[in-house]
Amino acid sequence: MAKTISQEFKKGLWEEIPPFRLVLGLCPVLAVTTTLENGVGMGLATTFVLVCANLLVSILRNVIPPKIRVPCFIIIIATFVILVELLMQAFAYGLFLNLGIFIPLIVVNCVVLGRAEAFASKNKIVPSLADGLGIGIGFTLSLGVLGALRESLGSGTILGNPVFGPNFQPFEFMVQAPGAFVALGLLLCIMNILGKK
């Protein structure tokens, strides 16, 4: 019944990897993954919020009255999101300019609230941390893969370095919004084929 800590951690990386398996939190997934750097930056910001929110929700789970648990979770999550926003402005302004509105929108990312509600509010501190970290890293990986795919096909670069040589004609469709849906769909398809066995 009770899963071990490493199982809680690992489930976020494959079994319940957020955008691909749970198909949750798609707004930032589709919007910011035009480059690998943006995808990973967004993933790390979300991971930070997930881990901190899970930790605090788990600590306070017996103090928060059940009837107002959602407003309490939102306050906790919003606090960490603004923290990330301020820190990013101070130390990584270039990334902040790229991610823009999607940083404040982490507040309403259903992955974050979902983990607080479904996991951290019912489990002890250490499993909640492992859960947050696992899901967060899974989220970062997914955004990274999607970002790398779209950047390499759409702009012909990885982290700003050309990868296909000077004759490559960028497939610009991939860095536009419809390309995001196509790339995500293809990845979901691959994940399903691999997961089937």
């Binding site: 107002i68 309490c72 306050i75 919003a78 606090t79 923290l83 301020l86 820190l87 101070a90």
Partner: peptide
């Protein structure tokens, strides 16, 4: 509970806001 939570969150954020203002 809500009041305390909101007050702590507000206090924490204003500290961070002030300390990062110069760098921003």
């Amino acid at each position: 509970t809500l009041t305390i939570l909101a007050a702590v969150a507000g206090g924490l954020l204003s500290v961070v806001k002030i300390s990062t203002a110069e760098r921003i």
